[in-house]
Nucleic acid binder design. Sequence first.
DNA 1: TGCCAGGCCGGGT
DNA 2: ACCCGGCATGGC
Length: 229
Amino acid sequence: MRFVKIAHMKKAEVLTEIYDSLFKSFGKQYWWPGDTDFEVVVGAILTQNTNWTNVEKAIKNIKTAKVFTLKKLYQINEDKLAELIKPSGYFNVKAKRLKNFLEWLFTNYNGSLTKLFKQDCAILREQLLSVNGIGRETADSIILYAAKKPTFVVDAYTKRVLVRHGLITEDYNYEAIKAVFEENLPKEVSFYNEYHALIVRVGKYYCKPKMRCEECPLKDVYRTRPRQN
DNA sequence: TGCCAGGCCGGGT
DNA sequence: ACCCGGCATGGC
């Protein structure tokens, strides 16, 4: 029985098994989907609680308007920006959040992402979290996929996958979940990059609230409540 | 058709 | 330290 086998494995082994299984099923994901570091930052804010396809429409609008540069978005009128990013939802708050970030970047880093990213990983995270509108996941996405420093990105999918595998319980918060990965796996940017992308991939199509685990590519790795939901 | 998507903030308890 | 309402479009 596969569940018996998994039951006595250590967390590191289960996490590795999950990764290997996902990679085998889906292959390389080529994340983050974006042409530049700045596009990663914008995408990270726009995708908050929003489907990525909607974000793509918003990004396309910004490009079509020929204002997809740090300086131009810094200068553009907030309402005008909100209009451009409308398809991504919550357009008023997101326009404000983008503006908050840009205002902060120009004030503190002379509008230079390079200067911002040059800092130590932990400092960079603190800095990003100090910006209103940038929370943990958004900050970690920016650090991993734009600054390319090793921090594990956690999202709703990540929690669901770990809970279903019995690695954590429902009460684990963001930092605790992040620690499960970082304390059990090598801190490598390319590895974290691929792992998070694969989790999003499996979460999008299989590991959904009402979906049965039998349909999921990870079914052979499950050990708890494999036949519930 | 209603539900959900790669969250975050601010106010209340 | 949690808990909750608000924010909003588009796809299935």
